[in-house]
């Protein structure tokens, strides 16, 4: 198993880099994901879309090993993530970069030290080389000159870009983005979108994106899964989804109120509570 969890993700360009089969995940009595299966092709950018609370972020947390599935299998480059020990998970995660929704920068460290943290922890690079690597990544996200700033001195968009630089500093094979464009102005959204595409292609990564932003999704991703009602409600390329006749896909892509995807929380007694 230790060998399986080796930090080298070997390249087999034929097989999908991520393969999820019959995945079931429950929180208490509520089933969040009910037997979903999908593959992710190496080098692609894949989006997970769907209404709030549908389980999109849960998919990322399951793939990165933050959560364990109740049933099913999650294979990343042939390694079964759901059965890894804590040590194996840590070795596995050295090849995964994750951009969390709020950036999650370390508030007591400067921008430079935030980006340098994974390098200091996992490599023994001399300080001069480490500095050069950090500055290269910082310049790549267009924030050269901010290295001495503290996170509270950055705007939301800048913080997201610093977090992106930190996530890719070890050149991971797989990059995961959780709502990378939420709360950003249109210019920052376009900047982040370009950075995601360029980073993915330049570093030969595979990217998974959780997003609500249908317009940006159509410009960015190669393939998309729509998750609703604990199932995959639709899938395809952005062009295929735009042309889809499926009522659920049409409702989500075009933001329609009426359709099979409910707006109200599906809990017991929701209607009755209005009467009491």
């Amino acid at each position: 198993m230790t060998e399986h969890a080796s930090n080298t993700i070997q390249a087999d360009h034929q097989a999908p880099i991520i393969s999820v089969k019959d995945l079931v995940f429950r929180r208490g009595r509520r089933t969040i994901l009910d037997g979903i299966s999908f593959d992710v092709r190496r080098g692609s950018i894949v989006a997970f879309m769907g209404p709030s609370g549908a389980g999109k972020t849960t998919v990322l947390q399951l793939i990165s090993g933050q959560l364990r599935p109740d049933e099913g299998s999650i294979q990343v480059n042939g390694q079964e993530v759901s059965r890894m020990s804590q040590g194996e998970l840590y070795r596995f995660r050295r090849n995964i970069g994750v951009l969390l929704q709020n950036g999650a920068l370390f508030t007591d460290l400067t921008v430079f030290e935030n980006i340098a943290t994974p390098l200091r922890e996992h490599t023994n690079l001399p300080e001069a080389l480490l500095r050069r690597l950090v500055m290269t990544k910082l310049n790549a996200v267009g924030l050269g000159g901010t290295e001495e700033l503290m996170p509270h001195e950055l705007s939301g968009g800048m913080a997201r870009r610093v977090a992106l630089a930190r996530a890719v500093v070890l050149d991971p094979a797989i990059m995961m983005y959780d709502e990378p464009m939420t709360g950003l102005d249109p210019i920052a959204v376009s900047t982040v979108r370009h950075l995601m595409r360029e980073t993915n292609d330049a570093l030969g990564m595979t990217s998974l994106v959780v997003t609500h932003n249908v317009v940006q999704m159509t410009k960015l991703v190669d393939y998309c899964y729509i998750i609703a009602g604990a199932k995959i409600a639709g899938q395809g390329t952005p062009a295929e989804l735009a042309a889809s006749n499926d009522t659920g896909v049409d409702q989500f892509i075009n933001g329609k109120v009426e359709g099979p995807i409910p707006f109200h929380y599906q809990g017991a007694g929701a209607a009755w509570s209005l009467l009491g």
């Binding site: 990165s64 998970l89 840590y90 050295r94 969390l100 999650a104 920068l105 943290t117 994974p118 922890e121």
Partner: peptide
Amino acid sequence: LMRATSQIDAMQLMAID
């Protein structure tokens, strides 16, 4: 506060205990 702002999660995802 580090937990509430996902800094602890970020460390775990960076394979830092």
